[in-house]
């Protein structure tokens, strides 16, 4: 039952987006976010949308997966749109009732914000859809490595993340076993009132925690036995190599960013 959970929603593939160096992908995603927020005109958003859809097409991942990524945030989107719709008072009044009124300025802004956030979600989903969590961790470690000079524990954080990723399937399997074991002893996990179920959850969490501590202890010993000594002087099997396509992708992104800034300055709306 729990086995079907996918973490980070990675879709393995062989597209050019998949093949990009993960470090570049992270940087490009950051530029993309700037890109969406730097302009305040519809033309800027149109260019941003063009960029997003182009990238989605190149990734070869079905478009409906990106719509799915927006779904969990729908309530938040609706609230944002409504607040903008009713509380912005600029432009001509279109409709009013008592203290509520809708103006052209409000309509414009709520549509603009809605489109901007949807693009933001879709574009950043592309990063996690096309990069495996472990590669992503690796890339973050390397991008943050200059912070090591400030005694920021970059390697330790990345190691923790990758061990967490490694143990997610193991712990899911274990949780499944514990649930079955407790059910066999008569625990109600799927039925009963909300409070009974919440109470019964304790009977799953306690054994799970106990066994996790034991695992952590054994893993630490095993790591020490294999000469683990923190990040200093470590070499890596996984080599991140930037290729020509990474620079091309970066250049295209910067070009779009420039386009948006120009559009924001030159175009009327």
């Amino acid at each position: 039952m729990l086995k079907d959970i996918t973490i980070g929603q990675f879709f393995p593939g062989n597209s050019i987006i998949h093949k990009l160096d993960p470090r570049f992908k992270i940087v490009i995603t950051l530029i993309f976010i700037v890109m969406l927020f730097v302009g305040s005109k519809f033309a800027c958003l149109a260019i941003g949308a063009l960029y997003t859809f182009l990238a989605i097409m190149l990734s070869g991942i079905p478009f409906k997966m990106f719509l799915k990524s927006v779904k969990p945030l729908l309530p938040f989107l609706i609230i944002t749109a409504l607040i903008n719709l009713f509380l912005v008072g600029t432009g001509d009044v279109l409709w009013s009732w008592k203290f509520l009124k809708i103006t052209t300025g409000g309509v414009n802004l709520s549509v603009f914000m809605l489109a901007r956030i949807v693009l933001l979600i879709m574009g950043s989903s592309l990063l996690t859809y096309t990069t495996s969590p472990i590669t992503l961790t690796d890339a973050i470690e390397r991008l943050l490595s200059p912070l090591k000079k400030l005694k920021f524990p970059v390697h330790e954080l990345a190691m923790m993340m990758s061990i967490a990723l490694r143990f997610i399937p193991t712990l899911i399997e274990e949780t499944d076993k514990i649930i079955s074991a407790q059910k066999a002893r008569g625990a109600e996990i799927d039925s009963g009132s909300f409070t009974t179920r919440a109470k019964n959850l304790v009977s799953i969490l306690v054994p799970l925690f106990v066994s996790s501590f034991r695992r952590a202890d054994e893993l630490a010993t095993a790591m020490e036995c294999r000469c683990y000594n923190g990040g200093d002087g470590r070499t890596r099997l996984r080599q991140l190599k930037s290729a020509r396509r990474d620079y091309v992708a970066l250049a295209v992104t910067v070009f779009f960013l420039a386009g948006i800034i120009a559009a924001d300055k030159l175009l009327p709306f």
Binding site: I134, S162, I163, L165, R166, T170, R214, R215, E218, L219, A222, M223, R226
Partner: peptide
């Protein structure tokens, strides 16, 4: 326990 001595996901 083989599970508790494997560090990486690959």
């Amino acid at each position: 326990n083989p599970d508790n001595q494997i560090v990486s996901s690959i």
